[in-house]
Computed example of a mutant assay.
Amino acid sequence: MFQNPSNEAIASILKNAKTIAVVGLSDDPSRESYAVSAEMQRRGYKIIPVNPNVQEVLGERAVASLADLPEPVDIVNIFRRSEALPDVVREAVNTSAPVIWAQQGIYNEEAADIARAHGKTMVMDRCIMVMHSLFVRGA
């Protein structure tokens, strides 16, 4: 049964990360992926949009897939439905990112097993912005 890392581990992940690849980042400001990523960008993180349907989001050039990342990343943050998570994680385990993060409401045991089998830390069903507010900004 999957368990998220401890609050201390999540705080450490967020304090040490600098670059976040965001799978499913929309260029529509009304979408949660846009709002959360914009706020994380304001908080000092470099955001790399991963979405084959957009050219640029938040002033950053988008890439079509995780295989196209132009530089190493610290976190792959995922805004996709739970049933899409295993396929996204299969791509994410081939990146430099030690952490794969599925946003609030996104949870899939198979995806967690894939991440674990590849030595990656998995966070699921947690909003990265809320966790940052609680454990980094509030610290």
Rank of each mutant, 00 (worst) to 15 (best):
A35K: 15
K15D: 03
E91V: 13
E71I: 00
I106K: 08
A115S: 02
A11E: 10
E109W: 02
K18D: 04
A111I: 04
A17V: 03
R31M: 10
S82E: 12
R90I: 04
E56I: 12
N7I: 12
S96I: 00
R137P: 01
A117K: 07
V136G: 06
I100D: 07
P70I: 04
A115V: 01
S26T: 02
A139H: 10
V89F: 01
P70Y: 07
M129L: 13
D68N: 11
Y107W: 11
V123E: 00
L58N: 12
V50E: 14
A97V: 00
D28K: 11
Q3V: 00
M124L: 01
N108Q: 13
A62E: 12
A112Q: 08
V136K: 10
P86S: 14
A62K: 13
L58R: 13
N53E: 14
V50Q: 14
I47N: 04
R31F: 05
N16I: 03
I114R: 09
A21T: 05
I48S: 03
M122C: 05
A92N: 10
I100P: 12
A117S: 10
Q103E: 11
M124Y: 01
E8H: 01
V93S: 14
K18Q: 11
I10D: 01
E8P: 00
Y34E: 12
E91M: 15
A38E: 10
V54A: 14
P52H: 07
D125P: 02
S133R: 15
I13A: 04
V130G: 11
I20A: 07
E8C: 02
K120I: 02
D74W: 01
K46L: 09
A64T: 12
Q103R: 09
E109C: 06
P29S: 13
A111M: 04
A112N: 08
V130A: 12
D28F: 09
F79N: 15
M129C: 13
A21M: 09
G59T: 11
A11K: 05
E83Q: 15
I13P: 00
G105T: 06
P72A: 00
R80Q: 11
T19Y: 05
A97Q: 07
H132E: 07
Y45T: 07
V73Y: 04
N108A: 12
E32W: 03
I13K: 00
I75N: 05
R126M: 15
P98N: 00
F79A: 13
E8L: 06
R126Q: 15
D68C: 02
M122V: 01
D87C: 11
A21R: 05
P86G: 15
E39D: 07
A111W: 01
V50Y: 09
E71V: 01
V99L: 04
E71D: 13
S133I: 04
R42V: 02
R61H: 13
A21I: 08
D87L: 14
E83P: 15
D74H: 07
A64Y: 15
S26K: 12
Q55Y: 03
C127H: 03
N7W: 07
V54E: 05
R137E: 04
Q104C: 11
A35C: 14
M122P: 08
Y45E: 09
A117R: 06
A102V: 06
H132Y: 03
K46N: 05
E71P: 15
A102C: 09
